[in-house]
Amino acid sequence: MAHLRPLEDSEIDDPFIVERFAHYAETRGFTPNSIRTMARRPEIVKAFMALNQAILYEGTVSEQLKMLISLASSFAAGCLYCQSHMTNLSHIYDAPDEKITQILEFETSEYFSDAEKAALNLAFRAAQTPNQAEQGDFDRLGKYFSESEIVEIVASIGLFGFLNRWNDTMATSLEPLPAERAERILSDHDWSAGKHVAG
């Protein structure tokens, strides 16, 4: 059960946040409880949403790959809330279920290209504590991505360093849609919501 209750729409009066929450509801089918909790400090949630937009939805690395990188980072960090959300977003951005299901076996899976494998390798290594990223991981990445694209990839991992810590610390309540999608797609991994079950 969450340590802080997510705010209801009626408790939010900042017009920008109201508009962005409506956007989330329209594009995802719900507004994440992570930012509903964060909205107690409007400047923090606005800065976070701007950073999230710049990292995941701008640049030249595909949005699908960024979602998979974020999913890999969340697996490495152990955040069940973010695993469910990034399973959902990977699905929204057209990652086949097989790709999502085999994220932990990416190195041997036929569903991932060599470029995707290089990016996921860094995600899994960099999201661990302590960080396992080494020069060889960047040498491998550099075969497929420009320096600007490597910044996008590392930014995606870094963004989820924040989100994994935020949601695991807050025990953020998981919404029904991402929970159902994760339970279905990640069933081979015995995935469960753990402490993020809505109470």
Rank of each mutant, 00 (worst) to 15 (best):
I100N: 04
A2M: 02
T129Q: 10
M67V: 00
R165D: 08
E26V: 04
T60C: 10
L159C: 06
V18F: 07
L89G: 04
G78K: 04
G199S: 14
A115V: 02
P178K: 05
M38K: 02
F16M: 10
E43N: 15
R125F: 09
T87L: 09
F160V: 01
E63A: 14
Q53E: 15
L7F: 01
P130Y: 06
E8H: 12
V45S: 02
I44F: 03
A76G: 04
T60S: 15
F162Q: 11
M170S: 11
R40H: 06
M49Q: 11
D13K: 14
F145E: 13
N131R: 10
V151R: 14
D188Y: 11
Y81M: 03
K66R: 09
A198F: 09
E107S: 07
D190E: 14
R28C: 10
T27N: 13
P130K: 05
E43S: 14
G59I: 03
D13M: 10
Y81R: 04
E116N: 10
H196N: 09
L51D: 08
A118R: 06
I92H: 13
N164K: 00
G78Q: 01
K46G: 09
E26A: 14
F112K: 02
T129V: 12
A95G: 05
Y93S: 02
K195D: 03
F30G: 00
A115S: 14
I12C: 01
S113C: 08
Y111A: 10
E43Q: 15
Y81E: 04
R36G: 01
H23Y: 15
D139T: 11
N33F: 05
E105Y: 10
S156F: 08
D188L: 13
T60P: 00
R140F: 13
A171R: 13
S113D: 10
R181P: 00
Q53F: 07
V45D: 03
I103R: 12
S173D: 15
I100S: 05
M1F: 00
I92N: 11
C79L: 03
A47F: 03
Q132L: 14
P15W: 04
N167W: 02
P15T: 03
A25K: 15
F145R: 07
E11W: 08
L163M: 12
L122M: 15
D137C: 05
V151K: 14
W166N: 12
Q83D: 07
E110P: 07
E19N: 07
F124E: 08
A25L: 04
S70L: 02
V154F: 15
S109M: 08
I35D: 06
H85I: 02
E175P: 11
A126W: 08
P32N: 06
D188E: 13
I153C: 04
Y57V: 00
L120N: 12
A25Q: 15
E183V: 03
I185L: 11
G136W: 04
E116M: 04
G142H: 11
G29F: 02
N52P: 02
I185S: 06
T108G: 07
H196W: 08
A179V: 00
E149D: 13
E183I: 07
F145Y: 15
L51N: 12
K99L: 09
F124D: 11
Q53I: 01
H189L: 14
